[in-house]
Amino acid sequence: MRNATEEPGRDVVVSLKGVHKKFGQTEVLRGVDMEISKGEVVAIIGKSGSGKSTALRCIDLLESINSGTITVCGHKVHSPDVDLRALRLDIGIVFQSYNLFPHLTIEENVMLAPTAVKKIPKKEARELAHRVLGQVGLMEKAGQYPDQLSGGQQQRVAIARSLAMEPKVMLFDEVTSALDPQLTGEVLRVIEDLATKGMTMIMVTHEMNFARRVADTIVFMNEGKVWETGSASILNDPRTPELREFLQNEL
């Protein structure tokens, strides 16, 4: 990760220090340290059980941590009196199972949060919705229902839904893992587009080639810790044996 002190002018927007998390008796995160700068694209890789999804979910307070600190855009996520609403306005998260609201149209799905949370009037919200839907290439589906769309299209809507709230950081939790292989491309294209536009992003992913191409930094997590990290070159030339083994299994 780029160290904020080494490169003046780069501000750190997400910072995890010594994060520990237990589920019951099992310690899933055993001291996670990470720093992400504005505009940086980070890909978190690792085998299942390594804690990567958990770490991501802790950033948006979907899980609470046992010790350590997490700071996002100035919000102290680890603190009991964090402003949850303000935090969630700054972070957008997209899930593996898209989680669209089936009883609302695509348009209504995207408009819900802007109207309910930001109190944007309906007309403006509709224009906003059409704009972000256009950004993901699905403007013509605005009046349809989620069950009329393919998995890839639903996932793009989920991304649009998060984008409509104009977050400062976007989190992607294995967003292509539940998709048929031929549908992942359309989703990855949208994510790449966001990256080139300068969005700060953290993605948990299995798509190695995509990570190599798009990510500024790769984080390999193992046994609840950040095991190895660096630019995309570590995928070609891993330093630790665990990463080497992981990459071999992935191919």
Binding site: R88, I91, F95, S97, N99, H103, L112, V117, A158, R161
Partner: peptide, 27 residues
């Protein structure tokens, strides 16, 4: 109602009351 939907609504910033009204009730 699937937990995933509730999480999505929560992370979009909706309050508990809003989640009930917009997401849970009608479904």
């Amino acid at each position: 109602i699937e937990k995933g939907q509730l999480e999505a609504a929560e992370t979009l910033g909706l309050t508990r009351r809003q989640v009930y009204w917009h997401v849970i009730l009608k479904q």
